[in-house]
Simulated scan of single mutants.
Amino acid sequence: MQIAQGDILDFSAYLEQTARPSQEAVVWKWHDVAASLASRPHNVQGTLVLADGEAVDRATIAPGLSLVVQVLKAGETTKPHRHSFWHLYIVRAGAGEVSLGAELRRQRVAEGDVLFVPAWHTHAVHNLEGEVPLVLLRLQNLPQNASLGTLAREDDGHLKHIYANEHVAAV
């Protein structure tokens, strides 16, 4: 591996390079989101990300934050896992349960509920009732962790650091 030579900048040049344009307000209409959900491949971990196409980091809604639309169809569940970023869940539709902590304590959630899961807190989401999909809006600081190089996830006791270049490091 070759080590790159660093640049030395004047402080004023540094300030110019770190300046960002001010962000404009953005709206996502739910009927557009729902139509996109119907036409995209289903994934229990998340189907859509609402993104500001004009932002410096296009996959975010604000610096360091992303908003995922996660849908679990009736009978679906995610595996217990934990990771280096937090989630703020808002239940948009349906009902289900969330398993939390090392003991996987079950907590029922329904439309309108809000749940915060801290970083490194084990969790899983379940839609084990009825025929109505469980639709969650999930605000998270995953992009912040990715930009700092601290994005990591643990599944089944296996910790993996996540990089865009997967060959760089995997634990």
Rank of each mutant, 00 (worst) to 15 (best):
S22W: 10
L100D: 02
R106D: 06
V109S: 01
A25K: 12
E103W: 01
L115K: 03
T60G: 05
T77K: 14
L136M: 00
G149D: 01
R106I: 08
F11W: 03
G6V: 01
H81T: 05
K73F: 11
E129T: 11
G149F: 04
V69S: 08
Y14R: 00
I3W: 10
V171T: 11
V135E: 00
L72F: 05
D155N: 13
E97W: 12
E131Q: 15
L15Y: 00
L15N: 06
Q144G: 10
L104T: 04
N165G: 02
A102R: 15
I61S: 02
L48T: 02
L151K: 04
A95P: 02
V56N: 08
E131F: 12
R108L: 03
L88E: 09
S22L: 13
D52V: 06
L128I: 09
A102L: 15
A34M: 09
T150S: 14
H81M: 08
L137R: 05
S22C: 07
E24S: 13
V71G: 07
L115Y: 01
T78D: 02
K79D: 12
H167V: 12
H121V: 13
L100R: 05
G130F: 09
L15G: 02
A25W: 10
L50S: 04
R153K: 15
N145H: 11
A13R: 12
R82Y: 12
H123M: 04
H121E: 15
L50G: 06
L65S: 03
L88I: 09
L151V: 00
E154I: 12
R20H: 07
R58I: 10
A95F: 00
A170S: 15
P118L: 03
T78H: 07
P21V: 06
N127D: 06
